[in-house]
């Protein structure tokens, strides 16, 4: 069995639709501060793993988990503990 890492890792645009459902606005241009290393990245630049029980978002600088999103039974469970601050335009 051969699995290419690149097959599993996507960029932040892959969760544009999911974050639009949650925040009801376009979020890929939002800027997140990594709670682990302090680096700032646009949401569109993060590393995304979707072949998992939920969506896992990792920092492109330090690789630590920034966000986890689980969806089921008409609910979301959103863990943003790896994002110290999320900056985005109002409206």
């Amino acid at each position: 069995m051969t699995v290419q890492q690149s097959d599993l890792k996507l960029d932040g645009n892959a969760i544009g639709g999911l974050l639009r459902e949650i925040f009801t606005m376009e979020m890929t241009a939002a800027i997140g501060t990594c709670a682990h290393c302090g680096t700032l990245h646009a949401v569109g630049e993060v590393e995304v793993y979707m072949n998992a029980p939920g969506v896992v978002v990792r920092c492109p600088s330090c690789g630590e988990v920034q966000m986890k999103v689980v969806r089921g039974h008409g609910k979301y469970w959103l863990d943003l503990s790896g994002v110290r601050c999320l900056e985005f335009s109002a409206g």
């Binding site: 699995v3 599993l8 072949n51 998992a52 990792r58």
Partner: peptide, 9 residues
Amino acid sequence: YPVLSAGPT
């Protein structure tokens, strides 16, 4: 055999 992964190997 689906492969699930929450991060890099």
